[in-house]
């Protein structure tokens, strides 16, 4: 987390997605971010081969949320042996859709002058949380009431020491919006909404007890809810 009001959405450290030994010397590490309402795939390309690499291009397979490169992979100069270059690739969500297992799985093809290579990676569902995800209070109440009990998923977050206001503010930096807060029997109940890029809404209740560092998160609506909610733990930390 950051200091004061300068908190921003959590971005995971890069992990290796493509091993050099499986890609004729090309190693790719990456992560995902959402900045200014734009999703980015942040890539480090390393040339571990003996010869120069050129002519890079990238393509995604169809995926659950229609993620697609919004432009070409910009590797402006040839990549010399032992050289690493950082590339930030903006993504759109208007690509072809196909439900993947798991839902946030992304299959990627990268080519260079040597060959075409394939890898898959998992993106955090939070990159799909849009900035206008604060649901009208009236709509929230009506929607919550209409949802059958069996659509509710619940999980627990242990050892989190934020109070409800700090949690609310931290979650808002990840586009998880608090619509109402109530205190009942010494428990703070935060009612929250999330909107995904494909228009699906997730409604959540975050329950915190004063002096207890364990939170309970309950969420409702479609299957995306569960992975959306599991992100809350990362966002809070």
């Amino acid at each position: 987390g950051g200091v004061g009001t300068t908190t921003s959405a959590y971005v995971a450290p890069k992990t290796v997605w493509l091993l050099a030994m499986k890609a004729k010397g090309l190693e790719i590490a990456g992560t995902f971010s959402r900045r200014g309402g734009v999703i980015h795939m942040e890539l480090s390309l390393t040339n571990k081969a003996m010869s120069v690499m050129t002519d890079f291009a990238i393509q995604f397979n169809r995926n659950s949320f229609g993620l697609a490169p919004a432009g070409p992979l910009q590797v402006l100069t040839p990549l010399s042996p032992n050289q690493t270059t950082e590339v930030s690739l903006p993504l759109s969500t208007v690509g072809p859709v196909m439900k993947m297992e798991p839902l946030n799985n992304l299959q990627v093809a990268v080519k260079n002058n040597i060959d075409v290579f394939y890898f898959s990676c998992l993106y955090p569902i939070s990159i799909l949380f849009v900035e206008d995800g604060k649901m009208e209070r009236q709509v929230f109440l009506a929607t919550w009431k209409d949802i059958p009990n069996e659509n509710e998923a619940q999980f627990h977050i242990k050892d989190c020491h934020l109070n409800s206001d700090a949690a609310s503010s931290k979650l808002q930096s990840s586009n998880i919006f608090t619509i109402a807060k109530r205190t009942v029997d010494n428990q703070d109940m935060l009612y929250q909404s999330i909107k995904l890029t494909n228009g699906i809404w997730v409604l959540a209740e975050l329950r915190l007890q004063a002096g207890n560092s364990n939170y309970t998160v309950s969420g409702v609506l479609e299957r995306e809810s569960y992975i959306a909610l599991s992100y809350m733990e990362l966002a809070l930390r």
Binding site: R137, Q138, L141, W144, A180, R182, T183, V184, D185, Q187, M189, Y191, E205, S218
Partner: peptide
């Protein structure tokens, strides 16, 4: 904040979730 009945509705929701 305007008293549009929603404040009360959220209180009832929280109450019903805590003491179903």
């Amino acid at each position: 904040e305007l008293d549009d009945g929603l404040d009360e509705a959220f209180s009832r929701l929280a109450e019903s979730r805590t003491n179903p």
